[in-house]
Design a protein around this nucleic acid. Structure first.
Lengths: 133, 133
DNA sequence: CGGTATCCTGAAGGATACTG
DNA sequence: CAGTATCCTTCAGGATACCG
């Protein structure tokens, strides 16, 4: 028996590999298709809605709005709506969001750097698969 | 005009925010729903197929096989099939895959640690939304 | 054991139109 | 400008069956 189980105040250890653990959902939000890119962009600087839309190419208005809402609800993104005409809404990272964004940005930059290696691996794999037929 | 554009041998800079950039696809593979968890698991140690299936709860055989194939083709995962009866296949990380897995694992552990903060943020958000109605 | 093949459904997500 | 609402499509992914 573990010591932690004897502590009445201790939380159960989180485990992303457990499908019922809430940490799984947190991880899925920050690694979601558009969530990764929004966090990565906001890690550079604050953005307005339409700026983000142009920066993260391929995202629809609907998915961008939905992604921002999810990230705001999780406490990662700060939404500041200015009551001016035309409307203006600024998005930025909270301290919690910055932690996630730094890790996500590291992954994004790594992906950018390793494209040649990945493409070489794919060619090798496909060549081998073809040779077997 | 940038200096890099003047170098004949220079590759175009990769940009995950550009929907046409191959780095976008690389990032999507490593941050895919099951890809994250498989990389995270393999970062701890090598696993057999059925071991992974039990470790990563909620994944179907189909998705696990598909995810492993994608990661193998990208050069992240090494697949070793042993010709014994019953069959035995070991999965582990390549040096390239380990780089990705370290970054992914950092994100996974962060998610596990920050569950309380995220849940508090959600409660605050939902409470505010309800108060506005 | 470690898959592949087939079928099928639900949810993600795109297109379009509309609004404060 | 910054969304929301609606409709519609695509496809990730689950269930099942079968195979080396």
């Amino acid at each position: 028996m573990k010591v932690s189980e004897l502590k009445p105040g201790g939380l159960p250890p989180a485990d992303v590999f457990d499908r019922m653990c809430p940490s799984r959902g947190v991880l899925e939000h920050v690694t979601s298709r558009w969530g990764v890119l929004v966090l990565g962009a906001l890690n550079e600087r604050g953005y307005r809605f339409s700026e983000l839309r142009r920066k993260v190419t391929g995202v629809s208005e609907k998915m961008l709005a939905q992604t921002l809402q999810t990230l705001e609800r999780d406490g990662f993104v700060l939404r500041e709506a200015h009551p001016v005409i035309p409307p203006r809404v600024d998005y930025s990272l909270t301290p919690l969001g910055r932690e996630a964004a730094e890790l996500v940005a590291a992954l994004a930059h790594w992906s950018e750097r390793r494209v040649p290696e990945v493409e070489a691996a794919r060619q090798a794999y496909d060549g081998r698969a073809t040779a077997l037929r």
